[in-house]
Design a protein around this nucleic acid. Sequence first.
DNA 1: AATGAATGAGGATTCATTCAT
DNA 2: GATGAATGAATCCTCATTCAT
Lengths: 197, 197, 197, 197
Amino acid sequence: MPKLGMEPIRRKALVDATIVEIGRAGSLDVTVSQIAKRAGMSTALAHHYFGGKEQIFLAAMRHILSVYSAQVRAALMVANDPRARLEAIIRASFEAGNFRGEVISAWMNFYVQAQTSTGAKRLLNVYQARLRSNLLHELRPLIGQRAPDVAANIAALIDGLYIRHALRTAMPDGRLASDRVLGCLDMMLATPKGKAK
Amino acid sequence: MPKLGMEPIRRKALVDATIVEIGRAGSLDVTVSQIAKRAGMSTALAHHYFGGKEQIFLAAMRHILSVYSAQVRAALMVANDPRARLEAIIRASFEAGNFRGEVISAWMNFYVQAQTSTGAKRLLNVYQARLRSNLLHELRPLIGQRAPDVAANIAALIDGLYIRHALRTAMPDGRLASDRVLGCLDMMLATPKGKAK
Amino acid sequence: MPKLGMEPIRRKALVDATIVEIGRAGSLDVTVSQIAKRAGMSTALAHHYFGGKEQIFLAAMRHILSVYSAQVRAALMVANDPRARLEAIIRASFEAGNFRGEVISAWMNFYVQAQTSTGAKRLLNVYQARLRSNLLHELRPLIGQRAPDVAANIAALIDGLYIRHALRTAMPDGRLASDRVLGCLDMMLATPKGKAK
Amino acid sequence: MPKLGMEPIRRKALVDATIVEIGRAGSLDVTVSQIAKRAGMSTALAHHYFGGKEQIFLAAMRHILSVYSAQVRAALMVANDPRARLEAIIRASFEAGNFRGEVISAWMNFYVQAQTSTGAKRLLNVYQARLRSNLLHELRPLIGQRAPDVAANIAALIDGLYIRHALRTAMPDGRLASDRVLGCLDMMLATPKGKAK
DNA sequence: AATGAATGAGGATTCATTCAT
DNA sequence: GATGAATGAATCCTCATTCAT
């Protein structure tokens, strides 16, 4: 019965199961047992492949971030001018795949876990840095020195919209959210330096 | 040792201890035992006064929100025109008392807990609604119909800046954060309807 | 506010509350706190008057037994011949005041407590002995040597009917129960020694 | 140490340990810890196999009832006429295996638990119904319409003798007890309808 | 007489993790 | 590779009881 090359399959199953379970529970209070059961294996095997609970969580996080990254990259490919590329980055953040109750919940929880786990903290820092650098790269040609400031605003806005949906009052609507961010973006692009006030 | 009228004293001690411990741990994985010890009493007494762990957490949350509320109200008192009042609301959000590692951490955790606990969810909804209504009230005289949209942007921005500080990379700096929000606010106030894009 | 002669009032309140609470809970898993609250006083006072939980239970038991005793004595007063007196004893056992869900439950629980508490055991032994002696006293004139045997049967039958109602399937009906016992009694009285089989 | 197929072994060990411990304590105030220790395992494992304390108790009860059932069935096999079968049923009730201090104690406690636990209540109802139906089945050919009445008497008598031994004044003697019930039975069988009184 | 305050001890339950097979 | 077996440690919570006032 031992099959060859089971490892990647098992790992993937566990990562997927972890995200689902965190989403379902709405918190990191998810037992290895639940995860393993959903992934169709014993807890012992889960430990065997990942070494421990924290590492399972980290792998799940890494997965979410890499999916998000890939989406951004793909969107950037097909956009031609800076403004279009900014839009691509922003829309990718609220893509249907990411901007779902489950993933929002997992995301929030990762922020909490980052308080404790250096691994989680590092991953979130990578995410923040990458988002900032992506934005900066497209903003510079458009607004030069004001780019860092606007990038920070946009990034905060994105995260803020995420957290505001963590309460699950209404179904998350990615289109609405990215339109809001784009509205702000255009406003900032249009405002000449130091004009306001 | 037993004196009369200990209840409010004990409750306050527990609430304070809870916030400190959540801040220290960076998560809600705080035991009643830790809280009680820091508050200088037995776990049994903590249970006696609050009934259970969740209620202790809720009380801590309620405390944080009410402190914040009081600060907003106080700031609104001394501000005379709408723009000043908006500034007051925003600055209150990043006041030194609130915008501290500990409180930010507690805050994030409450968002997570809101996924599970209806009590926590309700409290956060109250916070969001109150912030929105405060902003709206001052924005309407200034920009009329655009007020709801701008209010949503500002609110998201505030929350986003909070979450961005949850990683504790640098000391949270309230001045910087509120300046950033104010910058955006002024930009939005200055932009005539539909001009951008 | 300290009133004179409160002691008997408080004790009675506690005993009554105990019986009610045991009946309500259907088990001895009743906290001193519940009893004290129902009796309208603090747990500390309950301890002050009785010294401890077990003693409160014993007092409740003693009360039930003494009420029962009084009923038997009263019934015996007005009965003139042995047969009538036997009927009086039996009917008293199933009197409405005793043969109620609550009391049956308490009764059952006292049997259980007798396994642990010598006090409870002693009280139940007194009850059993008194019932036996009462029955014997009336049976002897009627059937002489067969009296001990018949007394034991009747006693077992009474207890058996109690236990059978502990499941609370139907409302306990004292009339039915005592008719049943009386039916058996008359059968035994009518059967000449050694006739059966 | 871990071998396969431990589950039934562990469950049996726990059930046995439960009966012993209830017998020893004379009450249901038995901790899972005590039971697990006597069964030679950790409390965690006990919970793993049974899910909780109440279920352990129910399993113990079910075991006692099924042993009793088996004895009745076995005894019925070798008895040929109704009277013999009645005797078999009655003697089985007081068989040495059942009519022991420990089991009597457990039995009494189950009656108490039935006040709270629907599972326990159901099991005792099954016992009572089965006993009644067994008795009825044999009594009908002998006494026809009087069967239900006599069955109820016999059943109550059996339970009454059990409860009377719960005080553990003397060693329970099954022979004596069943002789007493048989004596009553024969008396009832011999008494023509309505003759007494 | 009466009580609010306080706690130590204990109990059910959960869970991550390890191990032998 | 895979798992059932097993547990130690921890956690929340309850409760009888004591004590100072």
